[in-house]
């Protein structure tokens, strides 16, 4: 068995090596695929905080992914069309600055996650899954019937937003930016898991009554985790919108939420790099098998079944053994 920290390092290096090789070989499409993996991994890392650490099986995280995406889409659309977002009571204009868009995406997603969590975390189990799903679908149908920003057709952004000191239209530079964000969020996630908050959240997942007897409010812990988780997924949504230069209601679809859960299960629930491995494998399968058959998801289903039955710690667990502490 390989120690998990070495495996994590190898995964991070592999995710960096592939686009670098593609850059040298002049294969921009492969760089875009790697960027997509990093962004989806970021969304998965966000969900993993709620699902893996807090035991909250949310089928509505696409809501935050979509909100992040639309935050980017709306701000960039107004900047490109030189129309203000709002004129009264005060003027708000669009922007093409990625840091500003990220900040808005994080704040909007966090706020939505807080509100949704406030209502849905009063339930558990299948009810929690259904309520989060319902919230996600509410956003989905709302954007479909919102003609101001493209309705069902979505919203195209002609030029990728800017980041100081970088040419974001260059695939390798945009990948580098996304990779850096992913690395920072992974460090943040690992730190959070080892903090008193993370330990208390894990304890609440194991036994809610016991955490109350040591003075911890399980509801507040979960609400905070759900909010942070939503904010990270929202950031991933903003990056995905910038990668595609397009946002549409499908970002809110429950299929998207399901895909995030698949990444986590494939890689390993609660494992720091689980979503990175899961997202990588998903994109590889989609790319290779998708070229052979439009029914490629049958093979993904079989793989998922095999992982659930034979590798409960996901692929990370299969290579590094069952979780011991928080390696």
């Amino acid at each position: 068995m390989i120690r998990e920290r070495y495996l994590n390092l190898a995964i991070m290096l592999a995710l960096l090596a592939v686009p670098l090789w593609a850059w040298v070989s002049d294969e921009p499409f492969t760089i875009t695929l790697a960027t997509r993996v990093a962004i989806l991994a970021l969304a998965g890392v966000g969900l993993n905080l709620a699902l893996g650490l807090g035991g909250l099986v949310s089928l509505g995280h696409a809501a935050f992914f979509g909100l992040g995406g639309y935050a980017m889409g709306i701000l960039a659309h107004h900047a490109q069309t030189y129309t203000p977002l709002m004129e009264s009571p005060f003027l708000i204009e669009g922007t093409k600055s990625m840091p500003v868009i990220w900040l808005v995406a994080v704040l909007v997603s966090a706020l939505a996650a807080f509100a949704i969590g406030l209502l849905s975390l009063r339930t558990t189990g299948v009810y929690f899954i259904m309520i989060t799903l319902a919230f996600g679908q509410m956003f989905y149908y709302f954007t479909i019937s919102w003609p101001a920003y493209g309705g069902e057709d979505g919203l195209s952004i002609y030029v990728r937003n800017g980041f100081p000191g970088l040419n974001t239209l260059d695939p390798i530079q945009f990948f580098g930016l996304v990779y850096g964000v992913l690395a920072l969020v992974l460090v943040f996630s690992a730190t959070l898991a080892r903090s008193r908050f993370g330990l208390a959240l894990a304890a609440a997942r194991q036994n809610e009554e016991r955490v109350r007897t040591v003075g911890l409010d399980a509801f507040r812990l979960r609400l905070m985790a759900f909010t942070i988780s939503g904010a990270i997924t929202g950031l991933a949504g903003a990056l995905m919108a910038d990668l595609n230069r397009f946002v549409s209601p499908t970002m809110f679809s429950w299929h998207m939420s399901g895909e995030f859960i698949v990444f986590i299960i494939l890689g390993g629930v609660g494992r720091l790099f689980g979503p990175v491995v899961g997202a990588g494998l998903f994109i590889i399968l989609e790319h290779i098998l998708g070229g052979l058959s439009e029914f490629w998801m049958i093979y993904l289903g079989a793989l998922l079944l095999a992982v659930v039955l034979f590798a409960r710690g996901g692929l990370i667990g299969a290579f590094s053994g069952p979780e011991v502490g928080h390696d």
Partner: peptide, 17 residues
């Protein structure tokens, strides 16, 4: 009733006030 999937140190830190 401890928190079984936390180690000894983590069990104590999680409860610390």
């Amino acid at each position: 009733r401890c928190f079984p999937n936390l180690d000894v140190r983590e069990n104590l830190i999680a409860a610390a006030r």
